[in-house]
Write a protein that binds this DNA or RNA. Structure first.
Lengths: 248, 248
DNA sequence: AGAAGGCTTCTGCCGGCGCCGAAGCGGTGC
DNA sequence: GCACCGCTTCGGCGCCGGCAGAAGCCTTCT
């Protein structure tokens, strides 16, 4: 596949909207995506077929529904990189949110969200900084876990990293809102899965926004010395609303 | 700038050809690019204007010539990532070279080439592996230079790395031909600049292909224990021909 | 079995984009 | 000053692609 053909898949506003929505790492149905992008079902169907044929999306038919998700971490990284570059390019920097509701949703997303399969936003960046300050993650000459970092995942967190796979254990992912790198790769995925499984972090709304729970605040303080979420209240109601809106 | 607009810049075969050619890190004139892509000067002019306006290229007017280059390392990385993903996607894998001359050029490129501002091909991957085997570069839990690696650049190579900049000192760049990562980032750039300055590696033809000289072979053996280029002959004539052809 | 719902295919419309050649502009060389 | 050269702008052509609506298929629900 030539480079231009791959880029053409993302060069349409509707398909780009699909891919950005799918960055939440979950599977969406064709109808959900159509409504999200504001196009007819027939239009969405054709777009999805092209994205699947191009290898960007993986589909799964369940009854009369067609569920679709990003084809894998590499695709997510590619879209994330493109989106990050796009956001920091051009005259205006980026479109500003129009409605009050959009502002609330944007604020919730900037605070804490998932980025495909890892944590992003202020939460993701703060955790990454804490790992670095504790000598668990090296950012000075690249981006890699130290030996202490590897044992921290296995012993302190109790979630050892898979080894030997082709996927890098640690890689930087440029955060849209913070404009600084946060932890991605299999370590980022393990961390995100773990905190969600243990109820330390919960999804709010139906989109990418998440919030730290009380137990999560305690865990972050115990494991990483983070006090910012130590006595965090439950997420405020207006931030829960329509968290699926917005691409960031 | 929306994601779709950025992708649209690369979604045209002619513009993609321009960007891939510019991955050699040097400045091309508008006419050179037009000839390379096989389009009229007027067509190339319009494409270049769009790429410059979109922030992908930086231009420099010199007299009646318009020189253009990639806007920076981030752009180069983005295009490299997209091209790498595109090359490994799709049914056929990729187009095969047609002519004998193209085969020779492709072989030279696979052996050793520049990738924007660092070394790639078998040479780049082998150096990266040697750095890793000597404990100078960690790839097991990410991608970062060790403290020994930092001092290796300063003491052994005699080219200390710039510190404190926003650009990562070490990052992986997936090699098209080897399908494995090689060293990029400021460390990769310093290494490439150094070996070119000292005549250890020379450009062959007008494109991205390079070759290790006799002095270079000795240096690689002394610094990294690499014997593969220790008694390398001068580059063979047919590999010099039309090394500018091919996008790889 | 019948009805409803989700998705797909087909058709036609329309706008945008890539392309070229011709003409024009500015810089360079003789 | 004149000719040449590289690039740009303009006009026009043709094609591709995105879009919605109608019709149809298949699954699920009642």
């Amino acid at each position: 596949m030539p480079l231009a053909a791959l880029a053409a898949l993302l060069a349409d506003a509707t398909r780009a909207t699909f891919c950005l929505a799918l960055l939440d790492g979950r599977a969406w149905s064709a109808g959900e995506l159509a409504a999200h992008a504001g196009v007819a079902a027939s239009t969405a169907s054709e777009h999805l077929s092209r994205l699947v044929a191009g290898g960007l999306l993986a589909e799964q038919r369940r009854g009369r529904r067609r569920y679709v998700r990003l084809a894998g971490p590499r695709v997510a990284q590619l879209i994330e990189d493109l989106a990050s570059h796009a956001a920091h390019t051009g005259p205006g920097g980026g479109p500003r949110p129009a409605t009050l509701r959009a502002v609330s949703a944007a604020r919730a997303l900037a605070e804490a969200r998932t980025c495909y399969d890892h944590l992003a936003g202020r939460l993701g960046v703060t955790i990454t900084d804490a790992l670095t300050a504790r000598g668990l993650l090296r950012q000075d000459a690249g981006f890699a876990l130290s030996d202490e970092g590897l044992s921290w995942f296995a012993v302190e967190l109790g979630a050892p990293l898979p080894g030997g796979g082709r996927r890098p254990q640690a890689r930087p992912c440029l955060d849209w809102t913070e404009r600084r790198p946060h932890l991605a790769g299999s370590a980022g995925a393990v961390l995100c899965t773990t905190v969600l499984e243990r109820g330390w972090v919960v999804r709010i709304g139906s989109g990418r926004a998440v919030a730290v729970t009380g137990a999560g605040g305690e865990a972050l303080e115990r494991l990483l010395g983070l006090t910012a979420w130590a006595s965090a209240a439950a997420p405020r109601p207006q931030e829960v609303l329509s968290a699926r809106a917005g691409g960031g």
